[in-house]
Design a binder for these strands. Structure first.
Lengths: 156, 156
DNA sequence: AGTAGATAGTATTGCGAAAAGACGATCTGG
DNA sequence: CCAGATCGTCTTTTCGCAATACTATCTACT
């Protein structure tokens, strides 16, 4: 038994608050703040997703995704492209400007994230990230490539 | 550099969603859901806190705390008691019924929390909890006592 | 003492985000 | 070819939450 302390939720909330407090300001001008940034990140890695796929992945309603994509398009960060295989869907692809934005921001965001884990020493932070990713059901560190993908794409 | 993957927020959100999806139903009838439950938990451990202290700890506005406490009082789970040292404050104390409620629920909540960490094996879950608590700035495992405190108090 | 400023709790108001429902377009299975 | 499901969009409604204001009380400074 021991550690099943039943207050995981409270701690989770506290850390999430630290996250939004520290990361939020870095993403101030960004369309929908952290949510918009996460969306763009999700667009970059992997195949161009449909809006429904994005909504499912980010856990938001598909009716919201419409407006979110609207604003990302308006900011010139992504484009809607028809999917030839299914004309109901719109594939969301990042523009050059979108890649550039991530390239600029991901460093600052990573920095703020580190600060949000301030009470953990570096080794613990890395371990925490690893466990968190696994808990989120993402591949071991499959997400680590987001920044790499961007910088690589920018060079091309 | 290595692991500073800048998507801690997304993973955090995913895990939090799993948490609310699994724990939420268990706390369905509870006054303000998980938030009310966390509040009551906070009330039980440590000295009877003021409403402002609770609000600060849980990261919610003090204007909300009024209604939250109102509903907990109405449900007979806590009481407002004047603080003799500061007559502006109301000390929030748990009633017998409140203790009983936690005693009944904390097991179910802990179970649901474990499920929310489903992709982690038991050893990883314990480690994750430990790191999360430290990241949240709570003492090493100071929170582990909540359940223990309750069961102890119920025996008295 | 006495006054000014801060803090605790409460009541009221207004706003903005998000879900619900409906709709046309399109795909899939029988 | 038809029924049902899915995708994206639009409209409407709901509701949580913060901002504001007010009273009572405490604290600090002079």
């Amino acid at each position: 038994m021991s550690d099943a302390t039943a207050d995981l939720g409270a701690a989770l909330g506290t850390v999430l608050r630290a996250y939004t407090d520290l990361v939020g300001p870095k993403l101030d001008g960004f369309p929908h703040g952290a949510r918009g940034y996460h969306t763009l990140t999700e667009v970059v890695e992997g195949r161009p997703p449909s809006q429904a796929a994005l909504a499912a992945k980010l856990g938001i309603d598909r009716t919201m995704m419409t407006y979110l994509i609207d604003d990302l398009v308006e900011a010139g960060l992504v484009e809607r492209q028809p999917n030839p295989h299914d004309r109901r869907q719109r594939q969301i692809v990042a523009t050059a400007r979108g890649l550039e934005a991530i390239g600029t921001l991901c460093g600052q965001v990573a920095e703020a994230e580190e600060a949000a884990l301030g009470t953990l020493d570096p080794a613990e932070r890395a371990l925490f990230r690893r466990l968190l990713h696994k808990a989120a059901g993402n591949g071991p560190l499959h997400t680590a490539e987001a920044c790499a993908i961007v910088t690589e794409a920018l060079e091309a």
